[in-house]
Amino acid sequence: MHIKEEVSERHVLTLTVDNEAGTLARIAGMFTSRGYNIDSLTVADISEDHATSRITIVTKGPPPVIDQIIAQCERLVPVHKVTDLTEAGPHVERELALVKVSGAGDQRVEAMRLADIYRARVIDATVNSFIFEITGGPDKIDTFVTLMREVGLVEVGRTGIVGLMRGSGAS
């Protein structure tokens, strides 16, 4: 007998939650204990009184599982609202990455040239290294990082995705 896998979809969920001890552990742990995937998770305080945070989770699963994930999130007491940006319609997704490359001569020039094309900014430079800051959708960042491998990539730090719905409404 072999274990069967189902076809998955990628979904971006945003959660408005109470900013209290244990909320992140409760949500992240619920994903692990129920066997759901987390591709990325970001969290930050978003309200003036620091009482609420917004969590953006990128997850994968077959449609019924995505539906369960949303329902299970809603069931948690500190979670006030869950929006599936992928279902909700047009939305923007952005991520920030810091990318360090090192090299000399042509390699260094090429790194600079590519960074320029991808609108990455130099935020640190030494005679043999750069740190680039780049923002964009996950695909753009993936491509940029792949290119940088060719020109001396040392390490990458990524924030994970945040997203908002397009237009004037709130998610």
């Binding site: 019924p64 539906d67 369960q68 329902a71 299970q72 809603e74 069931r75």
Partner: peptide, 11 residues
């Protein structure tokens, strides 16, 4: 009363 019980295993 628990929406997560609906469509969990049977549609």
């Amino acid at each position: 009363i628990d929406r997560s019980s609906i469509n969990k295993t049977v549609r």
